[in-house]
């Protein structure tokens, strides 16, 4: 098992469960993770002249999965910082100063951690999605994280779909 980039995990989960949303993931992949998260949080229907829209598409998976996994990555990163700070007092501020990395990642997790993560994911996803969908996503995420890093063709280091 190795560190997994959030965007890779999102892509794999979407590819498995909602392949029709893959263009969205590809489009979002053009931005840094922080930009993606900010855009996804902010996005809402806009009433523009000469626009045509029925409103939000219900049940889109990509934004939900990306935002939830980003929170997971952030929490795990915070936990790592806390641990390091406990070991080296005074370094906490220094460790924080680095800010958020351009690519959010999820470190290798133990089975217990994965089980706890699954429950955590379920709790969060159920707020946005149906229970069955939430379970499918949580399972897919756990499966993907258990597999570890998987630098595939659409990974962050791989060739861009646009290229």
């Amino acid at each position: 098992m190795a560190v997994a980039a959030v965007r890779d995990v999102v892509r794999d989960v979407v590819a498995e469960l909602a392949p029709e949303e893959l263009p969205l993931v590809d489009g979002l992949a053009a931005y840094d993770d922080s930009v993606v998260v900010r855009k996804l949080r902010r996005s809402g229907p806009r009433r523009e002249p000469l626009g045509f829209s029925w409103g939000e598409v219900v049940g889109l998976m990509t934004p939900v999965v990306w935002l939830v996994l980003d929170q997971v990555a952030e929490r795990l990163a915070d936990a790592a910082v806390e641990g390091a700070a406990r070991k080296a007092r005074g370094l906490r501020r220094w460790l924080r100063r680095g800010g958020r990395p351009a690519a959010a990642t999820i470190p290798p997790l133990t089975e217990d951690q994965l089980a706890a993560l699954r429950q955590d994911l379920l709790d969060q996803l159920k707020r946005e999605l149906e229970e069955r969908t939430a379970e499918q996503i949580a399972d897919a995420v756990v499966r993907r994280l258990a597999r570890g890093a998987d630098p595939g063709p659409a990974g962050p280091e791989g060739p861009s779909p646009a290229s």
Binding site: P45, R46, G51, G55, E56, P63
Partner: peptide
């Protein structure tokens, strides 16, 4: 890509 709406604008 971040817009979850199903619309378009010109």
């Amino acid at each position: 890509p971040a817009s979850a709406s199903d619309g378009a604008v010109v």
